[in-house]
Design a protein around this nucleic acid. Sequence first.
DNA 1: GCTGACAGAAAGATCATACTTTTGGCAACA
DNA 2: TGTTGCCAAAAGTATGATCTTTCTGTCAGC
Lengths: 236, 236
Amino acid sequence: MHGVEQHSGVLDRLGESIASGARAPGTVLTLAALEEEFGVSRTLVREVVRVLESMGMVESRRRVGVTVRPPRDWNPFDPRLIRWRLGGPGRDEQLRSLTELRTAIEPVAARLAAVRADAPTRRRLVELAARLRELGEARRGRDPEYLEVDTAYHALLLEASGNPMLAALQGVVAEVLAGRTALGLMPRSPDPGALEDHEATASAVATGDAAAAEARARAVVVEVLEGVVDVTEDTA
Amino acid sequence: MHGVEQHSGVLDRLGESIASGARAPGTVLTLAALEEEFGVSRTLVREVVRVLESMGMVESRRRVGVTVRPPRDWNPFDPRLIRWRLGGPGRDEQLRSLTELRTAIEPVAARLAAVRADAPTRRRLVELAARLRELGEARRGRDPEYLEVDTAYHALLLEASGNPMLAALQGVVAEVLAGRTALGLMPRSPDPGALEDHEATASAVATGDAAAAEARARAVVVEVLEGVVDVTEDTA
DNA sequence: GCTGACAGAAAGATCATACTTTTGGCAACA
DNA sequence: TGTTGCCAAAAGTATGATCTTTCTGTCAGC
């Protein structure tokens, strides 16, 4: 009964119920009620509430109780919150946010990587891009292996940027890619232009051509945006 | 003696000492020792440790103790961590990371804003840009008011993107701008081109010209990069 | 009827302590 | 030398008690 990872269990259950909207903003909880609901001690409930508070999801006040805060106060970069949202009704919305974020991040990461990456990393990036093209041309765009290589490629690019904040988004990008594949949004035969852009980005990084790396990486994500979401209008 | 925000106090002190490197990765703490060091109860120490654990900064294991994790496991988007770093020896490094992140985010935010922002927001953005130009032309680039308007302008742009993750970076951008001013990196007379780009971005957003908004916002941040950090090399 | 001070109670905040579970290390043994 | 089993250390959880804050209602005074 005891000691079986209770903390993370309660945290996940409570956090998810808030993230999903099941407990709407403004809802007031009491420690006693939570204690009762989850069948755990005050100590544990308090620790969980403190963590949620640190994520901006609830606010605890004397004499009032634990209040659910509105979503705009939550820290949307918290990995747990991202997971909860991806697992609930906010899934599509979350994927859209993440995809837009990706389009912002990757070109800059490519530019920085072209300037900063070390030699082995540059080589590895080129290898991954080449492998990706092979798989794509073999019409294996929906293979687990394609996803794996694609994920590794983008993760390495972010890592190579040398910027910890960009690097920290690896998990996020992995989620987006996995989500796209899971939802069947990936074609069996990826667009040749996209494969070409992946390779061109890698080789620009390899040769230290920052401008080209950024431009090609941007081409990659523009493809992504056009393929996935509705922000395709240009007045130009 | 009691009840005076002990939790956040201990959290800040412990978190800062880890963020600053005073407690190196791999360092093992025990709850008993922390209890002693900060003169608080075990309950309180546990709650603090739980929060730090949720930030990825420490790992708590039975029979071992509380181990400080390496910085690459920390969540660099946590506002508290950002604050601790800005207040410690990692300040410059943190500002550089944030500035690079800004350059990634803002052009995309501008594009999205051009598509999604509501009418009052578009107007307000134009107003802020105009006010910024006035102040700049009056050689008031180091005035608190310039910083205030500049901050409001960029915050509104991010907000107008309609993307919660981009919007959440308002605080971060505010820190960067405040940091630049505090460090005396702002010229008394901002570059006319920069002021022009701010206004052009705003008016592109106002007219819904996504491509122009993105391009002009990029011009703004390119200026920033060139003025602040060392990533200015282009092979093209 | 309105204002403000006061009292009481509700609920979190903190503390102290006891008990449980896991696990790393060491020693005895094969 | 390798394996097994025991022990103790330290976190995990639970509980009861007390402290502090703050909301709410009430009553006196104007």
